[in-house]
Computed example of a mutant assay.
Amino acid sequence: MIELNQIVKRYKTKKQDVLAVDHVDLSIQSGSIFGVIGFSGAGKSTLVRLFNNLEQPTSGDVTIDGDNIGQLSKKDLRKKRQKVSMIFQHFNLLWSRTVLNNITFPLEIAGVPKQEAKQRAAELVELVGLKGREDAYPSELSGGQKQRVGIARALANEPTVLLCDEATSALDPQTTDEILDLLLKIKEQRNLTIVIITHEMHVIRRICDEVAVMENGSVIEQGSVTNVFENPKHEVTKRFVKEDLNDDFEDAFADIEHFGKDDYIVRLNFTGNNTTEPIVSYITRAHQIDVNILEANIKNTKSGSIGFLVLHLPNINSEKFEDFNSDLAKQQVSVEVLRHD
């Protein structure tokens, strides 16, 4: 369990004080994957560095597995950092060391016997899919391979918590998905708690259980990934969700030449099994409603599918629309009216 209680981080400069993290409370369950998302300058990277005391909070407490990080001695903090490991956007590899020697480096610092360190590193090389590349140098590796080395190195001391600071931001989309799949596999095999810092909602959607959205140092929205995607409340969250779902239904409105007073434009939101149901044919059959599809998308999350349909429903009186709305609600499909004159 990770607990952040009223965390504040201020930076003082000659010209001004910067409030990077503003009274943040978080509770992260052991064995979960927790995402923190925000645009540049939101405070998310500062926040993650407070987890292992790379940055010291101005006030507030960080507690990991019962240990208050700010109250540990220097010796105990060094030991704790071995169990709260970190991977970075730009890999931070030692360019003069091979893949295997990069992975053994933290084991050398921890005083692990050389033969044991080599054996553990060899096992990690295989785990992250780099078998046969043990003697390669970072300059000989692709971006995805470098990050695999970074992950293996972070796992060397068998941590319980893995912090990922924009770990996929420097990678192409296909490689990003490969790294996310690897993190999922490692999490299941090793029962890790993973905290992911990102500005990409795709990353959150693909592997996270819960998400916190940050803006100006504060957490402005928090909840399960499914709930946040279904019902984003803050404008920043809505923007992230819209961009990830390619939700540009406003553009489709312009294509409707004639919009009558009894016409509706609605958005249907789906989750789980109902994303695979033939909802359009059901609407036309059960309610005798004509349907014009303006926009649609379905995406996969760790816990299931989410999706939406934007429909133009012409010539419906209010009573018929209420029957339609009530029926879909019973099937756990929410209806949002986007336009009705």
Rank of each mutant, 00 (worst) to 15 (best):
S73H: 10
D17A: 14
S303A: 13
E123Y: 10
G144T: 14
W95M: 13
A254M: 10
Q119K: 15
I64Y: 06
L328G: 03
T226D: 07
L338H: 08
V228H: 07
R148T: 10
E230Y: 06
K187D: 00
F308M: 04
N300A: 12
Q288L: 07
I298G: 00
N68E: 12
Q331T: 00
S169T: 08
L183Y: 04
K114G: 05
Q332K: 15
V128N: 08
P138N: 13
L171H: 11
L183T: 08
K83L: 09
K118Y: 12
V36Q: 02
K12P: 00
S139F: 08
S303F: 10
T276F: 12
E250K: 11
R339E: 09
G41T: 05
G143Y: 10
K302C: 03
K80M: 13
E108F: 04
L4M: 15
K320D: 04
L72T: 09
G35H: 04
E188R: 15
A286S: 06
L50M: 14
E3Y: 12
L50V: 12
A286P: 00
T275K: 12
N325M: 02
P278Y: 05
T46C: 05
E257K: 14
V219W: 06
V236Q: 12
S32H: 03
L26S: 07
L313C: 02
E188T: 13
Q29C: 01
R49F: 02
K83W: 09
L100Y: 01
K9T: 06
K146V: 05
D17N: 14
V266Q: 00
N102Y: 04
T46R: 04
A252D: 03
D327F: 01
V225R: 08
R133F: 15
D248W: 11
G43H: 06
V333C: 01
S85W: 11
H90W: 07
G223V: 10
M201E: 02
A152F: 09
K44M: 03
L180T: 07
M201K: 06
N297W: 07
V8W: 15
V161N: 03
I151W: 06
F91Q: 05
Q119V: 09
K79P: 06
V8E: 13
A329E: 13
I186W: 05
L54M: 12
K131Y: 10
E295L: 02
I196H: 00
K330V: 02
R267P: 05
N246C: 10
Q115H: 08
V203I: 06
K12A: 09
N273V: 15
S85R: 10
N274C: 04
F324I: 08
T160D: 10
E134C: 02
E158G: 00
H199D: 03
M214E: 11
G150K: 12
K83H: 15
L72C: 07
L245G: 01
Y282H: 09
E158N: 14
I298W: 02
V266F: 01
I207S: 00
G111M: 08
H312N: 09
I37W: 07
